[in-house]
Nucleic acid binder design. Structure first.
Lengths: 223, 223
DNA sequence: AAAAGCTGTCACAAAACTATACTATTTATA
DNA sequence: TATAAATAGTATAGTTTTGTGACAGCTTTT
């Protein structure tokens, strides 16, 4: 279940938010000022922070700015009507939503669940494949073997990524050519072989994962 | 493999999404405006729709709303930066994810695969036949006996796969020759015998599954 | 502009595969 | 059981397919 950090200097406000939030099933922790909020936000992992703008010691904006330097935990700001409206509305701080005080707890809860749902839905899943010491990071376009970066040429990446993404499948020469080079490629028949050769060289000890399917094509096999 | 409908009025955007998506193995269809999108989304079954918000004729939201009346095909919306309102509005419509323009194709692909994976629950249909310890994986082009990989030559694979796919049926010599070797093969009559022999050898303890139909041909029999 | 790097093509070498010829065995039938 | 027909087994030469190094035309970097 999601964890929420509630930051407000007024005990009563924290209590009411806590009451509603835990009723919704969230795990709630509290902080009474900006400094404590920063400490907790950075030392623990919250799914959402609900923070008041007006607080003694360190205000909500400054705390938000500081937290954002290190983490991108979603933040909902609470503020009095008209107060710093532009700053919040400009979203220059990267605030995910804001609620005007006095607020209805019910409305706040709706915003909370909306933000959490949105963030979790769009959370970037790491797009990585690994097998033994071989790690393929598709999104970063990085291949490492036993922690060592493997340098590949663009074509090698394209060919390799396609094969890894379709690992375990028999890929015909035609498929590989048309997917990696494009269906309008009518070059030499041996081009694929040459690149397979280069790829195997780059893969070093893992070259055996690129299996030749005589008369058909190739298959990437890991485990 | 999954089918995707890409909806955007800009040809260039459609092309780049199409390129990346087909590289990932998706089958991609295109629509250039909201009306066409609705037509296609309702008449065909897509696994995912990627749709721009801003389009002439009929915008993405309206199209989304209309499609959702009839189908729950997952939808990823594309829209220009800063349209926070659109973002929330989009989620209220039951949009599955949201990507800000200009987007990196790589990021979009990650979202696409995340949504599809989430919706389908990573169900992977494998094209496999098995009988006792004999496993034939057609898509990987792998045959195993009691967990051990069996190495076959191309002709053996072709012949064996054809027989397994038509298991239980009497296959005449003529049928086998023409299906496996091609209609234009007029070689020696004994060629088939020889390959049957090699195949039986490869099948080891399961060689009895290849039954001789004297005067007719052969039949693959498994249980 | 020079240097370095990437791609596609080619020729040749190496490996793997296949068709065929030939012999042996099995099966059907008289 | 003898005989012919059909299928099984074996060896191998010739063919097909793949691996590899060299290289030239391009592109990107420096």
């Amino acid at each position: 279940m999601s964890r929420i950090l509630v930051v407000d200097d007024e005990f009563g406000i924290r209590e009411i938010i806590k009451k509603y939030a835990s009723f919704e099933g969230y795990e709630v922790k509290e902080a009474e000022d900006g400094m404590k909020a920063i400490d907790m936000a950075l030392s623990e992992d919250f799914d959402l922070i609900v923070m008041d703008v007006m607080m003694p010691e360190l205000d909500g904006f400054s705390a938000c700015k500081e937290i954002r330097k290190h983490k991108k935990t979603p933040i909902i700001m609470l503020s009095a009507r008209g107060e710093e409206y532009d700053r919040i509305h400009g979203f220059e701080l990267g605030v995910d939503d804001y609620v005007v005080k006095p607020f209805s707890p019910r409305e706040l809860m709706m915003r909370v669940s909306a933000v959490i749902k949105r963030v979790q839905g769009t959370r970037e899943e790491s797009d990585v494949f690994s097998y033994k010491g071989l790690v393929v990071d598709f999104s970063a376009r990085i291949v490492t073997i036993d922690g060592e970066r493997v340098n590949m040429t663009p074509k090698e990446y394209d060919l390799f990524f396609y094969m890894v993404k379709n690992r375990g499948l028999a890929l015909t020469r035609e498929t590989l050519i048309s997917k990696v080079w494009g269906y309008d490629f009518f070059g030499d028949d041996r081009t694929l072989d040459t690149h397979i050769k280069l790829l195997r060289k780059s893969l070093g000890e893992y070259s055996y994962c690129v299996v030749t399917l005589r008369g058909v094509g190739y298959r990437f096999e890991a485990e």
